[in-house]
Amino acid sequence: MSRYFTEEHEWIDVEGEIATVGITDYAQEQLGDIVFVELPVEGATFDKGDDAAVVESVKAASDVYAPISGEVVEANAALEDEPALVNSDAEEDGWFFKLRVTDASELEGLMNEAAYKKFVAAL
């Protein structure tokens, strides 16, 4: 399994043709207490860069983009009851949705963990 990162502070785990997407620990830390996550429905299709989810913190709503194109195969139902899971475990249990990847070449150019750490350190 490989993990990729975007400049929009999302992480993507790719296993076969399925990509699991979430926001990074840095992102949840910046957003603060998360009170609601609006997730896409199963079967929704996205092009890379489309609005895919919305994360609401106490102070603001922020869009989460589809980091790659694909079809939603699952949304994380646990976030409906416990949106704070994104704060407590952003990069594991606080995942947002899983996509069936339509174009794996879009992963090229995304950052690996070391590059993302460097990117965040420079912010």
Binding site: H9, E10, A60, A61, S62, D63
Partner: peptide, 8 residues
């Protein structure tokens, strides 16, 4: 991510 009042 982006929004009215976000990180960027």
């Amino acid at each position: 991510m982006s929004g009215n009042d976000d990180i960027a």
